[in-house]
């Protein structure tokens, strides 16, 4: 195992591209800022010597870009891990209903005029609740067969989407506000939000990254993996819990950003190969890069929201991938 020199060169390119995109993401805006000044400000911020005029960069633009990296990485790692644990190339982090769960909570919270700060917490609660219901429905004895889980996820997801639609219809004058919230938006990201998401992201994605080799073994099939000493059911449950925690936190604070968790791991698999030991960490980098760029596009074009950009461009890109590769 390991990357060949071509793969290594591409990896270095990816890291540089991510750093460049972060600087670019901060620099571009209604008032363009030279990249050098961006770097100076970040250094001042990190050493605790911020000046008054640094506020725009440090408190408005930078959190948005950092949140994009964080959420992009999260969704991509979780999507990759789900594709591995369900051995299904169409799996994404929303497979078990986490996104529709978050949407119900956020919609209800907005329509009930809860304080803004409470809404993500409520969304996270309903998101995790949805996954818990999926697990209960998909369970068979003490096992969680992948096909049953996927079907249960579809059922829970469509049920909750119907509930959300119903709620929106009832509060129709506020449909725009609700849609904007649930469709995936990074424009309000703050350091406080990042501090809320970060623990779940680190815990969830950290566990997934450490499970790379176990996921590789699982690709041989449940029986063979079990014969190699892998506790298959325990692995499946752990991946689901870890990925759901990280994804629930991400979508509750930024809305449902589509397609990233599906496309990024696929693209990484094409370039760097199928081993989850490389696929997951590289997906984190690539997902961060993709979301920073998508958000840049959302800000500078009339597409408004990052969730619209990823879904709009993600579909055609995915079709292109499918045509190029025999899945």
């Amino acid at each position: 195992m390991g990357l060949n020199s071509g793969g290594l060169a591409l990896l270095v390119t990816l890291v540089l591209a991510l750093m460049g995109a972060v600087v670019l993401g901060v620099a571009v805006g209604s008032v363009p800022i030279p990249p050098g000044e961006v770097l100076d400000t970040v250094l001042r911020g990190l050493s605790g010597n911020l000046r008054e005029e640094d506020v725009i960069i440090w408190d408005i633009r930078l959190p948005r870009v950092v949140m994009a990296v964080l959420v992009g990485a999260c969704l991509s790692v979780c999507g990759g891990a789900f594709q591995g644990v369900f051995r299904n190339p169409l799996a994404d982090p929303y497979l078990l209903g986490v996104a529709s769960g978050a949407a119900v909570g956020a919609t209800a919270g907005l329509l009930l005029d809860l304080p803004r700060g409470l809404i993500p917490l409520l969304a996270m609660l309903t998101a995790l609740g949805a996954v818990a219901v999926t697990l209960l429905l998909g369970r068979s004895g003490r096992r969680y067969p992948p096909t049953r889980l996927i079907l249960a996820g579809v059922v829970v997801g469509s049920f909750l989407s119907a509930v959300t639609t119903f709620l929106i219809m009832r509060g129709e004058d506020r449909a725009r506000e609700v849609l904007a919230y649930t469709l995936g938006d990074l424009s309000f990201a703050s350091w406080a939000d990042i501090a809320q998401v970060l623990p779940y992201a680190l815990l969830g994605c950290g566990a997934l990254l450490a499970l790379g080799r176990a996921l590789d073994l699982l690709q041989l099939g449940d029986l063979t993996a079990a014969s190699l000493g892998l506790p298959v059911e325990k692995l499946r449950l752990l991946v689901i819990v870890a990925a759901s925690l990280a994804t629930a936190a991400a979508v509750s604070y930024t809305g449902i950003i589509g397609f990233v968790g599906l496309i990024v791991p696929h693209t990484v698999r094409l370039i760097w190969g199928p081993s989850y030991r490389t696929l997951l960490p590289i997906s984190a980098l690539a997902g961060g890069l993709l979301l920073v760029l998508a958000d840049l596009l959302a800000r500078t074009t009339p597409l408004y929201q990052v969730g619209i950009v990823t879904t709009l461009l993600g579909g055609p890109f995915f079709l292109y991938l499918l045509r190029r590769v025999r899945v």
Binding site: M1, A210, L211, R213, A214, D216, L217, Q219, L220, G221, T224, A225, L228, G229, L230, P231, K234, L235, L238, R269, G273, P274, S275
Partner: peptide
């Protein structure tokens, strides 16, 4: 036994060494 189609033979064979020491059976 359905081998993952996009994996290289060497990497598949290496998975056979999976029966090493694992923490909780999950973390090498």
């Amino acid at each position: 036994e359905a081998l993952p189609l996009d994996a290289q033979v060497r990497d598949i064979v290496a998975l056979g060494r999976g029966a090493g020491e694992w923490k909780w059976g999950l973390f090498p």
